[in-house]
Amino acid sequence: MTRLTPTPSQTLGPFFAHGLLRPNDGNLAGPDAMGERIVLRGILRDHEGAGVRDALIELWQADAKGRYPGRDADADPAVNGFGRTMTGADGSFEFATVMPGAAAGTGNKRQAPHFLIGVFAAGLSRRVTTRIYAPDAGALADDEVFGELPPATRERIVAKASGAGRLEFEINLGGARATPAFSD
């Protein structure tokens, strides 16, 4: 049988905005979406702690009941599940969405509510992915992925509530508070 090798990745570069972004791409929830509306705000920093501008941030998440569009037939049609945006001059970015529910895990387990984040930028040869979890200690204790992460650093991928309906997190590519991330 034929077995092909995946095409090599190359950096996104700085000039992608016209090619990839449309005005509403950072809004994942339509007017009829079920669940708690939230603004998810983050900042991307390089090894020296400087904000990384002109990076592409992608978000993938379940709907309020933990269902993924395209995978679960009964997923909320008003929730896109996927969004993308770019960082501003200070490295910050934000998405308007709904709080995800507990998605199915492997076997019969449920996962803690979380977002999958993909980062592309000039200077990144490949995508960097990480998870950002909602601050829900009870659910985190039972999450199959979170439970396997190094206890010393995994708190860094739990978002912090910063007011009603607002969650914040950092993605530090290096330094003393480097964000746990998954190799692509």
């Binding site: 995978r71 996927f82 492997t106 590519l173 190799s183």
Partner: peptide, 26 residues
């Protein structure tokens, strides 16, 4: 590619998990 020196992720873990989150997509 010199620019990778301040961007290459230092918090890299092993391979990504493959739960239903990673097995679905837009």
């Amino acid at each position: 590619y010199g620019r990778t020196a301040r961007m290459a992720p230092e918090g890299l873990l092993a391979a990504s998990p493959r739960t239903p989150t990673e097995l679905a997509g837009p």
